[in-house]
């Protein structure tokens, strides 16, 4: 394991408004295919980060809860051991990474991801020629037949780390952010280095509101959530 870095994210559910800015930002940054109407109807949209909306109660005492969901970058990732070809594996900085060229598309990893964070390329995606101009040259365009998922914008991490290494230092807190975090208007998403005791995420994961999704499964997610606050509501 890397001595310097273990990447983590904190999602403050109390701040998230469901605005979808992170969703679009991720798609722009990561060359996500255009999710067509049909892709929604057949339930195959590509959203590495998505906003799940849960209803609670009945009208008129009804609430909607927004839950931003992305790959939890599990420390003990169930998607990894089941891949027959090592197309998905753990890197030294605690990330679950996906090697597109190796993937043969068994979708076993997706079955074994409790968070449904993995997305399959059911069809060959196309961009009208002019549109392809905006594609990010630092992110592979995925062909059909393979699996993909949130990478914690690993290309940004690598570029920044290379830069920092050249300057003979480690990355400073906040120096690099994934696209979703960067754009989130309410700052519901915070990203950083869990190995750095002084980073914002390191202090936020200690918040009394913290919880992890499906923690009981032992997946050791690197994404930590902070609970929605309800004044006078039921404590948990």
């Amino acid at each position: 394991m890397s001595e310097e870095y273990k990447w983590g994210m904190v999602v403050d559910v109390d701040r998230c408004t469901g605005c979808q800015a992170c969703v679009v930002a991720c798609q722009v940054e990561n060359n996500a295919p255009l999710s067509s109407e049909e892709s929604f109807q057949r339930r195959r949209p590509m959203q590495w980060i998505r906003i799940e909306r849960y209803w609670e109660g009945e009208y008129p005492h009804i609430k909607a809860r927004f839950l931003p969901l992305l790959c939890q970058q599990c420390g003990n990732a169930p998607c990894e051991p089941v891949c027959p070809v090592y197309a998905t594996y753990h890197n030294r900085e605690g990330l679950n990474v996906q090697i597109y060229p190796r993937c043969i598309g068994t979708r076993f990893c997706a079955n074994n991801c409790p968070y449904n964070a993995r997305f399959f390329n059911w069809v060959e995606h196309q961009w009208p020629p002019v549109m392809a101009n905006y594609l990010n040259p630092h992110v592979t365009v995925r062909p059909r037949g393979i699996m993909e998922k949130c990478t914690f914008c690993i290309h940004r991490l690598h570029r920044a780390q290379r830069q920092a290494k050249g300057e003979g230092r480690v990355l400073r807190d906040g120096e690099v952010q994934p696209a979703c975090v960067q754009t989130c208007p309410t700052n519901a998403l915070v990203f950083g280095n869990l190995k750095d005791p002084n980073s914002r995420v390191s202090s936020m994961v200690q918040d009394e509101r913290h919880y992890r999704l499906l923690e009981e499964l032992g997946t050791e997610p690197s994404v930590v959530y902070l609970k929605k606050v309800v004044p006078g509501g039921r404590a948990s």
Partner: peptide, 15 residues
């Protein structure tokens, strides 16, 4: 030739 888009599989029913 076309790909698994031709199936009824989806997210999360991948098998």
């Amino acid at each position: 030739y076309v790909g698994l888009g031709l199936t009824g599989l989806n997210w999360p029913v991948m098998w």
